[in-house]
Write a protein that binds this DNA or RNA. Structure first.
Lengths: 101, 101
DNA sequence: GTATATTTGACACTATTAGTCAACACGAGA
DNA sequence: TCTCGTGTTGACTAATAGTGTCAAATATAC
């Protein structure tokens, strides 16, 4: 199940939006938001940002959540998922330090 | 540039295969293998495994490399890439410990 | 009952990715 | 120079995945 979806649903309810109103506010179909909140469809980063703004909440954590879910989705049930994450992390650190473009 | 591509090119040359022969052996078009080795196209896991077998080399490291590249590709130039990786890692560990399906 | 909110599935549309093929460039050696 | 083996490139089509739209079904409250 999608953690990001759950969080965004909670945030929506806390902010007092119905699914319909939230969907209208960010200009998407109600069905899509419903499915996204329940993890049946993937969020786009753009929508996550729009929703964060609508609910007046901090975007960073949500973006991190969004990205990590994307990463986990890509790894699927792979046996070496953890090892791959470690390698990716190492390479990303290296890139950050040397590739200040 | 693709580390996986470079590695597989080295392995191919060490194993004494021309691009053509390797491509024929795993039943793909030469152009595809050429592009994959140079990072112009993404590898599929299936092809990585076939090539590892052809070159008689250990598959695990190559699979890990393959997965980490996939992950890094998904993260792109995201500001919070590292943070996302850490969250993903934490969640994956949790899943491994509790979700022995 | 009506009204509002959400879920579900079917469908079409678009974008992305994968596969095919032919032309091209290059160097080695006859 | 000719040609053979090697690798690169681009154009094109096919297959696949992702998105958006809509209406019907379901649920919840009044």
């Amino acid at each position: 199940m999608s953690t990001l979806g759950l969080k965004l649903r909670e945030l929506r309810e806390q902010a007092g939006f119905s699914l319909r109103k939230a969907a209208v506010a960010i200009d998407i179909d109600i069905a899509i938001l419903s499915k996204m909140e329940r993890g049946e469809r993937k969020f786009s980063k753009e929508l996550v940002l729009k929703l964060a703004e609508l609910y007046k909440t901090n975007t960073d954590k949500l973006v991190i959540e969004y990205l990590s879910e994307k990463v986990l989705y890509e790894l699927g049930e792979e046996e070496f998922g953890l090892e791959a994450l470690k390698v990716a992390e190492k390479r990303l650190r290296y890139k950050k330090n040397n590739n200040h473009e």
